[in-house]
Simulated scan of single mutants.
Amino acid sequence: MASPTLQVLRISASPRGAQSESLRLSQQILEALAARSAQNGDPAIELTELDTNLLAPVDAAYAATLAAHCTVRTC
Rank of each mutant, 00 (worst) to 15 (best):
S3W: 09
T48D: 05
D59Y: 08
A61H: 01
T48A: 03
E49L: 09
L9H: 04
I29E: 07
R16Y: 03
A56M: 11
A61D: 01
L30H: 04
T5W: 07
R16I: 01
A2T: 02
Y62F: 08
G41D: 02
S12K: 13
L54A: 13
P57M: 13
C70I: 06
N53Y: 09
L54S: 08
T71W: 05
D59F: 08
Y62W: 11
T5L: 11
S12P: 05
D51A: 12
S20C: 06
Q28V: 10
Q7L: 11
G41W: 04
L9T: 04
L6E: 08
A68L: 11
A68P: 07
T65I: 05
I11Y: 04
L54F: 01
E49R: 13
A63K: 10
L9S: 02
S37K: 02
A64W: 01
S22R: 00
R16A: 00
A64M: 05
C70M: 15
S14K: 01
T74Y: 13
L55P: 05
A61N: 00
R24L: 09
A67G: 08
Q27H: 09
G41N: 05
M1S: 10
A38H: 14
Q7S: 15
A44S: 13
Q39W: 06
S3Y: 09
Q39A: 15
P57R: 12
